[in-house]
């Protein structure tokens, strides 16, 4: 449920389909390369911030954004978001 929400809201933030990003498990640099919304890692960070903001708004969950290298796979980022969300919703 939460997983689905995060995938959708990230896909929307980078203007790509969730299937395209998550099924192929793209790396962050691959996402930057194919998204017309992203020029560099600062843009990517902004799209993570958008996801975090909407999680807070919709679910009241506070997620801290990690510093990630660009060879990180998106599945790893998703897990980090879910772990962070589990910590704050348990607290």
């Amino acid at each position: 449920m939460l997983r689905h929400y995060i995938c959708q809201s990230f896909a929307q933030a980078v203007n790509l389909s969730a299937e395209e990003i998550f099924e192929k498990d793209l790396t962050l640099s691959e996402i930057i390369a194919i998204s017309d919304k992203l020029q560099n890692s600062i843009d990517l960070m902004e799209s993570f911030a958008r996801v975090a903001n909407s999680l807070k708004k919709e679910y009241g969950i506070q997620v801290r954004l990690p510093a990630l290298s660009l060879d990180t796979a998106i599945s790893e980022v998703l897990e980090i978001f879910l772990e962070e969300a589990a910590i704050t919703s348990a607290a």
Partner: peptide, 11 residues
């Protein structure tokens, strides 16, 4: 800084 930036980014 982080909070202000995130507020400026919005949803």
């Amino acid at each position: 800084v982080e909070q202000t930036w995130m507020d400026l980014v919005g949803c």
